[in-house]
Amino acid sequence: MSYQKSSFYHPRLPVNDLGLTYRDYEGALSTLCAGCGHDAITSAIVQACFELSLPPHQVAKMSGIGCSSKAPNYFLNKSHGFNSVHGRMPSVTTGANLANRDLTYLAMSGDGDSASIGLGQFAHVVRRQLNMLYVVANNGVYGLTKGQLAATADKGVTNKGGELSLFSDIDLCVMALQLGATFVARSFSGDKKQLVPLIKAAMSHQGFAFIDIVSPCVTFNNHASSTRSYDYVHEHITTAAVTDFIPVKTEITSDCQAGVCEDICLHDGSLMRIHKLQADYDTKNAMKAINDIESHKQKGEILTGLFYLDPNGESFHDVNNSSDTPLNQLKQEVLCPGNRVLSSINDSFR
């Protein structure tokens, strides 16, 4: 294991529209276990941000507590990050977003952070329609405290120590769909081909985007009786559609065949191209998505891909009718009504 990240790189690394290389989007060296699914998510995020040509300093990385929440340290070194308290990332992100609507908010959470201690905050940030990408690295287990079962673990599985999961699991995608998220997807840390376009689309989406990423814990939840192990996920993963992300101003080379292919235009002009594997696949029907997720689960399958997308949904600042200028940039002369107004307010108290 290396302790320091090499600063050496190939002089002809490809650059993006901003003239930045992939390395400009990396972070500190990961201290997660070798083989951790979260590191694959990190790498997908780096690739997505690089390919989107996002200015790194215009991204704010938000997290709570847990292995997943440490991950933002391992990508986007030029972005500000905020590792807050356990389960409370959604409220901190809400405040940050209220203060500056112009940044891109990329939040990373885990199953403990979102489905247990932070379930209330998770639910309410979805309702609030905050413009952000909320990623849950879901491994069904508490890693940092060494292997306790999480609320997303399937009922009936055992953890590494043999403890049985006695209660129903919480499916955060189903909750997000029910609570009105405008972008909901599930993916697998080991499927970069699926994951990267989803992250790119989610970051381009205006509104609340949620991606639940099955991300196996190699140390505490990769055993035979787990439904979040690499082997189990590889064997049971399924999807109803393959999605591509086509950035703005890209020449579209192939036709989208009606019936099997669908283009969804996102708010910024980029396209989400969907190749349907199942004829009844529909990104506009949240009720059906919930039904599909549950019926696959009953068959022991993990349904992945884009579940729901409403590219024109309102987000918090639309509902609030907030000023176009970010609130943190308003000057005193705009904010402070001054003494003349105050003296008329005084008169109302006489």
């Binding site: 704010a60 905020f82 807050s84 308290v85 409370r88 959604p90 409220s91 901190v92 992100t93 809400t94 405040g95 940050a96 977003n97 209220l98 203060a99 500056n100 940044l103 209330g120 905050q121 639910a123 309410h124 609030r128 918090f316 600042h317 609030n320 009718n321 907030s322 000023s323 176009d324 609130l327 943190n328 308003l330 705009v334 904010l335």
Partner: peptide, 30 residues
């Protein structure tokens, strides 16, 4: 006619202060 402020009735006091902290971190007075 747009608002030069944002107010959120949060789900609890934990979130209420979290919102104030997040906004202050980002340079708004909250």
């Amino acid at each position: 006619g747009k608002k030069n402020y944002a107010l959120v009735q949060a789900e609890d006091e934990l979130a209420a202060i979290g919102i104030a902290i997040g906004a202050s971190w980002n340079g708004a007075r909250a």
